[in-house]
Write a protein that binds this DNA or RNA. Structure first.
Lengths: 109, 109
DNA sequence: TGCAGCCATGTCATATATGACATATACTAA
DNA sequence: TTAGTATATGTCATATATGACATGGCTGCA
């Protein structure tokens, strides 16, 4: 794989190449991806509960429809920052966010 | 792009809504800043509880001492992403993070 | 007096995230 | 069919975050 292609892939996808295998995400990376997925899903639920389209939410966030779609899909190019901003813009409180993060996390130790 | 405009003004020495107690920040911005402050504070507590210096944590994060200092200070140039990564690197679980976000700040609001 | 470890703060080149745009798909209604 | 609405996906210029570095303050210790 040449450098240019790898860079393009890395821009869209999870890490490619030397640092981590596709199935070899570290515990920490996994935890962060989990959080992102949960926040993305919660964003969609909350947006729909508000009766807003992606376009409408995008306007509220001063963003664009495509980015909202990527947020909800937990796209690799979307930061946790943006997801949190989106949720807060939909009225989510820190408590709501805390609930989102701990939902379904009852893994028996 | 209000935010970009604000940044540009601030870069030229204008203080645009720097503190929330002067109605410069919206409710949502305030909530995000609150979260950042809490995460920064929690990062420091957790780092010290681990007996690590900022340099040691920086190495673990593949970052630098100065950035860790800024994380703990909830510096404007630090993202929630980085703070969350720092906490996770110190062993914080989503549940821990949820607790951090909902911890009472002592303000009866 | 140093010196060493720790932390704060500022700057800067560059890596990354973002908004905007184009376009594709699916569904609905006239 | 055609038009309209909502969403998905890819690309790109650029705004932003980041690591690296410099520097200064502070504390304790020889």
């Amino acid at each position: 794989m040449n450098k240019a292609k790898q860079k393009r892939l890395e821009a869209r996808g999870w890490r490619v190449g030397t640092t981590s295998d596709f199935l070899g995400l570290s515990e920490e990376e996994t935890a962060l991806v989990e959080m992102k997925l949960r926040l993305g899903h919660a964003l969609r639920e909350r947006r729909e509960a508000c009766g807003l389209s992606q376009v409408a939410l995008a306007k509220r966030l001063q963003s664009s429809q495509s980015r909202v779609a990527k947020m909800e899909a937990a796209d690799q190019t979307v930061s946790l920052d943006l997801l949190l901003r989106g949720l807060v813009a939909l009225g989510a409180t820190p408590r709501d966010i805390a609930r989102i993060l701990t939902r379904n996390s009852g893994v028996a130790a």
